[in-house]
Design a protein around this nucleic acid. Structure first.
Lengths: 144, 144
DNA sequence: GTTATTATGATAACGGTTATCAATATCATA
DNA sequence: TATGATATTGATAACCGTTATCATAATAAC
């Protein structure tokens, strides 16, 4: 597997903050990168635990925070209030379609909507920073 | 004050579910309607407590749930994960601009964005149900 | 290896929300 | 208005995701 770039980014971040390497952090980074989903901390915990049974929740949360800091990971909060973590490196900004039956996520981006969002917030005198957009519906598979 | 319509809706809902009237419920409804903000349960609790010192948190949450059920109230969850409750009766669908400095809310609706959102989700084979859109930025007052 | 410092895991604490439960209020009926 | 069935209440425990605490262990510069 070619985790090279992401590993490099993580190591640079550790170095920049005078933090140390650890087996746990390596394992968490790899488990995170090898799972192509929007993971909750608990889901990641269970995955890491298979290879590193002694790992604790705190380490998962601490490491996810580091991954977010260095741009490898983005924390998302949807309606259930549970934090989910998605890959950020090499992913451009996007929003989400979410199936209300099966929970399927689709990443989308619509430049025209983006443009109108910026126009809209500026029209109200705001300096735009970011946005969240989630479109809920029933996906093709679930509608059958 | 003309709370007539909202009171009627609430009473009809209670009747439909074979629920009883209570002083607390009346007071919570009035406090909610008389406050034109996006209240947290805790904020509403403090307001109600001024007129009804014995009220408990549970009753606030229970009554807010009833208000949501009968369409007088909508629960919102933003990034902090804390539920906020806004008036729904007589309010059309809208999204929110949120100032990241002062927390100011502005209700907005952009028909063109709405149209594109529906188009976008359909293009991915979803049957559209609803969406959330929050635009974050710094408002005019805070930018000075 | 020694030593200073950071990381770890167990677990307590936290904050918002919900469930539990005994006591109380409501309301249809007599 | 008294009765009795049922819903409501408030206090508080429980819950759940997340964070803080802290003693022990791992890391890495020397």
């Amino acid at each position: 597997m070619s985790l090279g770039k992401e590993e490099k980014i993580f190591e640079d971040h550790l170095a920049a903050k005078y933090l140390k390497h650890s087996e746990q952090r390596k394992e968490i980074l790899h488990s995170f990168l090898n799972t192509d989903r929007h993971l909750t901390a608990d889901e990641l915990y269970r995955i890491v635990k298979r290879k590193y049974p002694a790992v604790g929740y705190a380490t998962i949360y601490r490491t996810l925070k580091l991954l977010c800091e260095c741009g490898l990971c983005r924390e998302l909060k949807f309606e259930d209030g549970v934090a989910r973590y998605e890959h950020l490196y090499g992913h451009q900004h996007h929003d989400h379609l979410i199936c209300t039956k099966c929970g399927r996520f689709v990443e989308v981006v619509d430049p025209e909507i983006e443009r109108l969002q910026e126009k809209l917030i500026k029209r109200h005198g705001f300096y735009p920073e970011r946005h969240r957009m989630e479109l809920y519906g029933v996906c093709k598979q679930c509608k059958k």
